[in-house]
């Protein structure tokens, strides 16, 4: 409790100077990072406002290609808000405003720049939501929709739906019932269908917003297995409130608090030997 009250001051103290803030954060990921992967997305001095209320404060971090990056932190720390910046979901609602930049490699496009087409970003970056939200259509149509938007038709469509369902480890369970309504699936299957739906269009980054928080432990374990299978093939950013999950699935973990990035580093380091006192207290469950 005390730590939680003291923490914001501590962070504010550290981050008063922009130079001081950005330098360690960048060095943290690029020099100390054990995984020598190229950077897929580079978040630089990202601010986010909802109306006059600033939710993200000067967040800087690197998302490594083909790695799983977990965003952890207590409720309201801005981890979901940060995630939804990557595919410009905030544009759907009025009064939202971005500052800073998210550079998407290899073409170096700034995702949050007003002149960047949010549609293009959403076609290149897939998303899976907290609550399984399949369309009330057939299992096949759920996966096919994104492909149809991209003009895929006929046998190629069928092949790619099958591929996506296989990639999401759902094919064996659904191959004989592709025309059944997706709502007839169990919660865990629905969430894997949502992952298949996102995978079908070959996203460059897959955003997972607390994908297992509405699922039972067995369904959760299957999703985590799936994330593990996708590692090395796909860049994944996962928001989770479950620290054990972050430890199980993430290569890199970023700890956020009150709209700021406190620390980012290899998962093992964050959980066992964090540089910041605040991070150590959070991962040890002393607040949050």
């Amino acid at each position: 409790m005390n730590a939680a009250l003291l923490a914001p001051k501590a962070i504010l103290g550290i981050k008063e100077d922009r130079q001081e803030l950005s330098a360690p954060a960048v060095i943290d990921t690029s020099l100390v990072h054990p995984i020598a992967q190229p950077t897929k997305a580079h978040v630089r001095h990202l601010d986010f406002w909802y109306g006059t209320h600033q939710i993200l404060h000067d967040v800087s971090l690197e998302i490594k290609e083909h790695c799983v990056t977990a965003l952890i932190g207590p409720s309201g720390c801005g981890k979901t808000t940060l995630l939804r910046c990557f595919n410009r979901m905030h544009d759907l609602y009025p009064g939202n405003c971005y500052g800073g930049e998210i550079i998407l490699n290899p073409d170096g496009l700034n995702i949050v720049c007003p002149t960047t087409d949010p549609l293009e970003m959403r076609m290149r970056i897939g998303m899976v939501f907290q609550k399984p939200n399949p369309y009330p259509k057939s299992i096949f149509e759920n996966v096919a929709f994104g492909l149809r938007l991209r003009g895929v038709k006929g046998s190629e469509l069928r092949d790619r739906v099958e591929w996506a369902l296989q990639s999401a480890a759902l094919w064996e369970e659904t191959k004989d019932r592709l025309n059944e309504n997706a709502l007839s699936l169990s919660g865990g299957q629905q969430q894997r269908l949502c992952i298949a739906r996102a995978l079908a269009t070959l996203p460059e980054i897959l955003l997972l917003d607390e994908p297992t928080s509405a699922l039972d432990p067995i369904a959760t374990a299957r999703i985590e297995e799936l994330i593990d299978e996708l590692r090395g093939r796909l860049t994944i950013i996962i928001v989770t409130h479950n620290m054990a999950q972050a430890q199980r699935v993430a290569d890199v973990t970023a700890f956020m608090y009150l709209g700021r990035l406190v620390e980012i580093g290899p998962t093992k380091q964050i959980f066992e030997n964090a540089a910041q006192e605040l991070t150590r207290e959070y991962v040890q469950g002393r607040f949050g």
Binding site: M89, F129, K137
Partner: peptide, 27 residues
């Protein structure tokens, strides 16, 4: 129709009209 359905369609890169035409109207 829940907000999640709209967000799902938009997150896949649909325009508003595609969301309306393929999802909201049928549902």
């Amino acid at each position: 129709i829940p907000r999640e359905i709209r967000e799902a369609a938009m997150a896949q890169g649909a325009t508003r009209w595609q969301m309306v035409r393929h999802h909201l109207l049928p549902y």
